[in-house]
């Protein structure tokens, strides 16, 4: 099953770029190409942030497969990302 992962950022800040880079690396390692990553800049799409009730940036939302999981931060702590997004299962 394909993973659908959304990353919300506020502008192309160093922190945003760091988060994108970290997330891609983790996904490539753990999920091969079985994932779709959507990066949403809330400055351009504020209504999406409103609909999803995003507060902090960067925020990662794993929408599929269920359950929905969220994690915030620049994703520099890989262990917590794997735990928070429940990505262990793909390795089993």
């Amino acid at each position: 099953m394909k993973y659908v992962i959304k990353l919300y950022i506020t502008g192309q800040t160093p922190r945003s770029l760091r988060a994108i880079e970290n997330l891609r690396r983790i996904c490539d390692t753990e999920l091969d190409d079985q994932y779709e990553l959507v990066v949403i800049d809330v400055l351009e799409r504020p209504q999406l942030a409103e609909d999803e009730k995003i507060l902090a940036t960067p925020t990662v939302v794993k929408e599929l497969p269920p359950p929905i999981r969220r994690i915030i931060g620049d994703l520099s702590d890989t262990e917590r990302v794997l735990l928070g997004l429940d990505l262990w299962s793909s390795q089993v």
């Binding site: 922190r15 925020t59 915030i72 931060g73 994703l75 520099s76 702590d77 928070g84």
Partner: peptide, 8 residues
């Protein structure tokens, strides 16, 4: 929500 690294 878990936290991994810096955020605002």
């Amino acid at each position: 929500t878990l936290v991994s690294g810096d955020f605002d």
